[in-house]
Amino acid sequence: MTDERTGHPIPTTAAELARYVDHTLLKPEATAADVTALVEEGARLGVFSVCVSPTFVAHAVEAAAGRLAVATVCGFPSGKHASDIKAAEAARSVVDGADEVDMVIDVGAARAGGFDLVQADVAAVRAAVPGDKVLKVIIESAALDDEQVVAVCRAAEAAGADFVKTSTGFHPAGGASVHAVGLMSATVGGRLGVKASGGVRTLDDALAMVAAGATRLGLSGTAGVLAGFAEDGGPRPAADSGY
């Protein structure tokens, strides 16, 4: 199924939508047992990956046993870390077995127009993350205006990122929006993936993000989102993305 407005493919089953999902647990109070449960639920649901805190990467890799990918974060959630510290954190996660790393930019630098600093920050982490591993760049889109969103996406692409991602889910400005996803998708033009994360809690939310151009979804309540298909027998019309 394809969205008539945007031309983006729209999942029509829970199994199809699950392949977009990074099944996420980043709460500071999470335990190893919680991560094991996350992996088992993710495997049962058929998600693409689990996303866990750096200290749990090795545990998640062991629990996953090749059934799904393991993603983690760096510079999380503020992004206010020196670039070499972010790079070291990312490198350690790769050693521990992470397949993907989601880094947080210095949002203040972006708000001040320091896009060269953003690019250098991303490039430092890219240098620490081998090319066969995926690097996603969290831009905290709700804290930026449209021009800043576009400029940060361009900086991330120039620095070698594989994805741009809307949000940490921890910023008071909010999480993903269909407008931001559409703008990010239009900016990267299919050359990079786009991950919608933060506040995507229902089937309608998820399908709207995909219609706007999201190629990955960060979800903590994955089971509830996927259950939406069973509730109505199929996907609901996606909200107008404006793109």
Results as ranks from 00 to 15, higher is better:
residue 71 A to R: 01
residue 71 A to W: 02
residue 73 V to N: 01
residue 49 S to D: 01
residue 50 V to Q: 03
residue 68 L to S: 03
residue 56 F to T: 11
residue 93 S to Q: 13
residue 73 V to E: 03
residue 47 V to D: 00
residue 92 R to F: 13
residue 56 F to E: 05
residue 84 D to Q: 02
residue 97 G to W: 08
residue 82 A to N: 02
residue 34 D to K: 00
residue 58 A to H: 11
residue 57 V to G: 15
residue 43 A to N: 05
residue 71 A to D: 13
residue 74 C to Y: 00
residue 32 A to I: 07
residue 61 V to Q: 10
residue 64 A to R: 09
residue 35 V to D: 01
residue 37 A to S: 12
residue 64 A to F: 09
residue 99 D to E: 15
residue 50 V to S: 04
residue 68 L to K: 01
residue 57 V to F: 11
residue 46 G to W: 03
residue 32 A to P: 11
residue 38 L to E: 13
residue 32 A to T: 14
residue 43 A to C: 07
residue 34 D to W: 02
residue 75 G to Y: 04
residue 72 T to V: 10
residue 37 A to E: 14
residue 41 E to A: 07
residue 56 F to Q: 09
residue 40 E to Y: 02
residue 67 R to N: 04
residue 61 V to D: 12
residue 94 V to D: 14
residue 90 A to T: 11
residue 68 L to E: 02
residue 49 S to V: 01
residue 64 A to I: 08
residue 73 V to S: 06
residue 57 V to P: 15
residue 40 E to R: 11
residue 44 R to Q: 15
residue 57 V to D: 10
residue 44 R to E: 15
residue 70 V to N: 07
residue 92 R to L: 15
residue 66 G to S: 02
residue 88 A to P: 01
residue 46 G to N: 03
residue 38 L to F: 07
residue 94 V to R: 09
residue 50 V to P: 08
residue 37 A to N: 08
residue 32 A to Q: 11
residue 92 R to D: 15
residue 41 E to Q: 10
residue 34 D to I: 04
residue 91 A to S: 12
residue 39 V to W: 02
residue 36 T to P: 11
residue 72 T to I: 10
residue 34 D to R: 00
residue 40 E to G: 07
residue 68 L to M: 06
residue 88 A to F: 02
residue 85 I to Y: 00
residue 66 G to E: 01
residue 91 A to R: 14
residue 76 F to Y: 13
residue 53 S to F: 04
residue 76 F to T: 06
residue 43 A to Y: 03
residue 77 P to I: 10
residue 51 C to E: 09
residue 35 V to F: 02
residue 83 S to E: 09
residue 44 R to H: 13
residue 76 F to W: 10
residue 34 D to G: 05
residue 64 A to M: 11
residue 74 C to G: 13
residue 48 F to Q: 09
residue 44 R to D: 15
residue 91 A to F: 12
residue 42 G to H: 06
residue 63 A to Q: 14
residue 73 V to P: 08
residue 54 P to Q: 09
residue 81 H to V: 15
residue 84 D to R: 00
residue 85 I to H: 00
residue 46 G to E: 04
residue 31 T to G: 05
residue 96 D to I: 10
residue 42 G to F: 03
residue 83 S to F: 01
residue 51 C to P: 08
residue 35 V to S: 01
residue 39 V to M: 05
residue 60 A to T: 10
residue 95 V to G: 09
residue 65 A to N: 08
residue 81 H to D: 14
residue 90 A to M: 14
residue 45 L to F: 01
residue 27 K to H: 12
residue 69 A to M: 14
residue 80 K to E: 15
residue 81 H to P: 00
residue 70 V to L: 08
residue 64 A to L: 08
residue 95 V to W: 14
residue 28 P to M: 04
residue 68 L to A: 05
residue 94 V to F: 13
residue 72 T to G: 10
residue 79 G to W: 06
residue 91 A to C: 08
residue 69 A to D: 12
residue 90 A to K: 11
residue 61 V to P: 11
residue 38 L to V: 14
residue 89 E to R: 00
residue 70 V to M: 06
residue 41 E to L: 03
residue 62 E to A: 15
residue 29 E to T: 04
residue 57 V to H: 13
residue 77 P to Y: 15
residue 94 V to M: 10
residue 37 A to W: 10
residue 87 A to N: 01
residue 49 S to Y: 00
residue 31 T to M: 04
residue 81 H to C: 10
residue 60 A to R: 04
residue 79 G to D: 08
residue 34 D to V: 05
residue 78 S to H: 13
residue 77 P to W: 12
residue 94 V to L: 13
residue 76 F to L: 06
residue 48 F to P: 01
residue 43 A to E: 09
residue 66 G to P: 03
